[in-house]
Measured scan of single mutants.
Amino acid sequence: MSIQHFRVALIPFFAAFCLPVFAHPETLVKVKDAEDQLGARVGYIELDLNSGKILESFRPEERFPMMSTFKVLLCGAVLSRVDAGQEQLGRRIHYSQNDLVEYSPVTEKHLTDGMTVRELCSAAITMSDNTAANLLLTTIGGPKELTAFLHNMGDHVTRLDRWEPELNEAIPNDERDTTMPAAMATTLRKLLTGELLTLASRQQLIDWMEADKVAGPLLRSALPAGWFIADKSGAGERGSRGIIAALGPDGKPSRIVVIYTTGSQATMDERNRQIAEIGASLIKHW
């Protein structure tokens, strides 16, 4: 067993022997301040990774656009098919120029040779490549099948209805392509620590998230040296922004954090800054 596999296998073990965790309302004060600064709703939840206990939450059962955070769930569904012998990570998928959609920095470079399922998941999570996500959605049967996968996990809230990039439209009061912070946090925890996926697939999923290259201005910008984070960000229309993450000190994750916002007129930089400040408060009061 590799060191990384050992780390993920012992996530519940280490967490069980940690000192009790206590909620700190100071972080919620910052979440509410972010709402004021952005002029928009902000949803927040913080779960203990081992027990699933909610440590703090704000608007945990209000719907927010998922945006690209759905790509972690998508690759979880792909990995479940791999575990069941219905898919192979090494299978190569070929596609054409007509398949390319807006923001496809990886797939646009491989029109000639195609990409493997493993490479597509890596591109979808680490670079948020939209064509990679659409190609992977095709392998599982489309958005409705991802929703069905989530329902089978016990998540009857999260739903995907459309493809990239239309799913980022974020129309107010439109339930399409949305989740709730509580539902997303619980589902992410199941994917990373539950028995739904094999140990190898859980490790692969967290490795992809740990290698995320496009979430630097968010929670990662607030992390002290030595902290662990595996995350996936999302951005959408109407001032929408979000991030889902597993993080913790001492090089291992111990909490799940989900943050979503929508309806702001603020710039992307300002949305990023507010999420980073929430992260800084979380870490300060850990």
Rank of each mutant, 00 (worst) to 15 (best):
S128L: 00
H156E: 08
E26S: 13
P224D: 07
T112L: 14
A132F: 01
P65V: 14
E56P: 00
T126G: 05
M115L: 04
A280H: 09
A280E: 08
A133C: 13
L38M: 06
V78N: 02
S96L: 12
R162W: 02
E195M: 15
E61S: 09
I283S: 15
Q37S: 06
S80V: 08
Y103S: 07
S264G: 11
G114F: 12
P253Y: 10
D33M: 07
G242K: 00
A230S: 10
K30P: 03
A123Q: 04
G226I: 03
K32S: 06
M66C: 10
T178S: 04
E102K: 04
S57W: 13
K284Q: 05
A185V: 13
L49G: 13
T116C: 10
Q265T: 11
L73M: 08
L120Y: 02
I229Q: 02
G226N: 06
E210F: 14
W208L: 13
D33K: 03
N50K: 14
K71L: 00
H285D: 09
W227R: 00
R202A: 10
L55G: 14
A211L: 15
A133Q: 01
E195G: 11
M115Q: 11
S264N: 05
V82Y: 09
G234E: 01
Q86H: 13
E277R: 12
S221R: 08
E56F: 05
L38T: 06
Q204Y: 04
T138P: 14
K190L: 13
T261G: 12
R92V: 12
E164K: 01
R202H: 08
G141E: 07
T139N: 12
G85C: 08
H94M: 05
E277D: 06
S201N: 13
R220G: 09
V29M: 12
N130W: 01
E164W: 00
E119I: 02
R189G: 12
A148Y: 05
H24L: 11
I256D: 01
P143T: 13
Y103V: 06
I54V: 15
R81I: 07
L100N: 13
L205P: 00
V72C: 11
N50L: 10
L197E: 14
L219M: 11
M127N: 14
A34D: 02
S233L: 02
F228N: 15
G251D: 09
I275T: 14
T262R: 06
M209V: 01
I45L: 13
H24Q: 11
G194V: 07
L79R: 00
S221V: 08
G142Q: 12
N173R: 08
K109P: 11
A235Q: 08
R118S: 13
E237Q: 14
R81C: 05
P25L: 10
G239W: 01
Y260N: 02
V214D: 02
Q37D: 06
R63S: 06
A225K: 14
V82M: 11
E87M: 08
H110F: 14
L49V: 15
H110G: 13
Y103D: 07
N173P: 06
D36S: 14
L188I: 15
K284T: 08
T147W: 05
E46V: 08
Y95A: 08
R220V: 10
P253L: 04
L167H: 02
Q86S: 12
T267A: 08
H24N: 12
L120V: 05
E175H: 13
E56K: 07
E270P: 03
E35N: 09
K32C: 07
R202S: 10
M127Q: 07
T261L: 11
Q274F: 06
T261D: 03
E61T: 14
S96R: 07
D83A: 08
P165N: 10
R176F: 12
V257K: 01
E35S: 10
R162A: 08
E237N: 13
K213E: 03
C121F: 01
R118I: 14
L73I: 06
Q274M: 09
F58L: 14
F58W: 13
T27G: 10
H156V: 12
E175M: 15
I275P: 01
Q37W: 06
R176K: 14
Q37G: 05
L199C: 12
S80D: 15
L49R: 10
G39N: 10
D36L: 13
G242L: 00
S80G: 12
A225W: 14
R220Q: 05
I140K: 03
D48F: 03
S68E: 00
P60F: 08
V42L: 06
R118T: 12
A235S: 07
H94I: 06
P25A: 13
E61C: 15
R220F: 10
Y95F: 08
T179I: 02
A170Y: 08
T126I: 08
W286M: 08
L219G: 03
M153A: 04
S51I: 05
V258R: 00
Q203F: 07
R220T: 12
E237K: 14
P217Q: 13
L223S: 09
G85R: 09
G279T: 07
L219C: 12
I93G: 02
V257D: 00
V106L: 12
H94E: 04
E35L: 02
I229V: 15
T69Q: 01
A225V: 13
L196N: 12
E26C: 12
H151F: 03
A211N: 15
L74E: 07
E56M: 04
L197Q: 04
M127K: 13
R220D: 03
G234S: 07
L38I: 06
P249H: 09
H156C: 11
H24F: 09
Q86P: 07
I256F: 05
H110S: 13
N134G: 05
T187A: 11
T187Q: 08
E108H: 13
M67I: 09
T116D: 11
G76Y: 09
G90I: 10
R118W: 12
T267R: 06
G90D: 06
D177P: 00
A182Y: 11
G239R: 02
S122Q: 10
Y95I: 04
A34K: 05
S96Y: 07
N98R: 09
L167I: 06
C121L: 03
S122F: 14
